[in-house]
Design a protein around this nucleic acid. Structure first.
Lengths: 193, 193
DNA sequence: ACGCACATGTAATCAGTTACATGATTCT
DNA sequence: AGAATCATGTAACTGATTACATGTGCGT
């Protein structure tokens, strides 16, 4: 059975924490927040929902409709909430891409601050390594590269630098924040018990 | 028959312009220049080569070896050179990803300056649109987003800004260069940070 | 009349990675 | 002895998009 990627499955699950939704609702929601993830299609959403249902992480309520196909409202179960917490707690693989990183960021950001810091730190390691590799490439290849290659390196390097800088900045902010105000709550809408 | 993506196929073809290579050579080459494209595997390289051969864009010379499998040295044909030129000349689809953009950048950067400028301009349009969408998302969602969502937007926005800034910068440099010194050859990188 | 929003789902297709299959040579 | 390099290729699997199938109701 097609289950899609675990990342996306848990991302969908996290949406159901806030409110119960149908597959169509989810697609609309993601379309509106289309600044990232570029509107995932039904081909991803429905299989993900079916897989979650099979694992008993969600429950369905079928709301029939005279003319249209019945709406299927998915609600997260207790097992689902627990599984989500565990998923968030475990560190993401370091080989993660930008898109997956963003999804994890949203997930973890709704939960604990410690988790968020760990998440950002790990990403910083990866970004730093990438940046270093790029810098070395520039040095090693030096003058003997074509204009196109030179541009490609510069382009990649610029983006990697920006990413790294942001991560450093955020981590500094977070550590400062927790020093000056360690009591600050961040559980917002997330029912972490 | 599995042919892989056209982008990658033409990228491989462009490598053969500089010198004839075997599949193994190409993999090694890409591994060394691993700062982008994260070492493509044989599963992509060999099918691409076979497809190019089938289209008569490359020719093979089989160099037998007593103990090992015969090396197959691929050379670009005249038809291949022409097809490559045509491929470079046509503007890339605007929905292109970062990885594909980098490949195109390398390809086009080895060719004409006009093509390069057009390429960068088109990318700028896309990046500008993305950046705008992100800015609007920040405004619209404003205060009511979770910490994770806020961070995700900020992260994406930071990277988009950096990309856009670099593109603007490069385009300015290129137009300046062509105004003040229109005779400048572009076989070697002239401008850098 | 035409298309869009609603609402579900499957299947085909594409892109890309990883594992498998084979086998000699050279380095540690 | 065991791993890495050289050298080719195929097949299986995962991830994601697009197209297909089905049908009503509402606005222009």
């Amino acid at each position: 059975m097609a289950r899609g990627s675990a990342d996306f499955r848990y991302f969908v699950l996290s949406l159901l924490v806030k409110r119960a939704m149908s597959g169509y609702d989810i697609r609309r929601f993601l379309k509106n927040l289309g600044w990232l993830l570029g509107n995932p299609s039904f081909g991803m959403i429905y299989p993900a929902l079916h897989a979650l249902l099979q694992d008993d992480l969600v429950a369905v309520e079928v709301v029939p409709h005279p003319s249209r196909p019945a709406r299927k409202i998915y609600t997260i179960t207790e097992a689902g909430k627990q599984a989500l917490q565990e998923w968030i707690a475990q560190p993401p693989p370091s080989s993660i891409g930008m898109r997956a990183f963003i999804m994890h960021l949203i997930l973890v950001g709704g939960s604990t601050r410690v988790g968020l810091v760990a998440h950002l730190q790990q990403r910083r390691e990866v970004a730093a390594a990438q940046h270093l590799a790029l810098e070395q490439a520039v040095e090693e290849l030096g003058e003997q590269v074509s204009l196109g290659e030179h541009m490609a390196i510069e382009y990649s390097s610029t983006i990697a630098s920006a990413e790294l800088a942001w991560l450093e900045d955020k981590l500094a902010q977070l550590s400062m924040g927790s020093e000056t105000d360690p009591s600050e709550k961040l559980t917002k809408g997330g029912s972490s018990k």
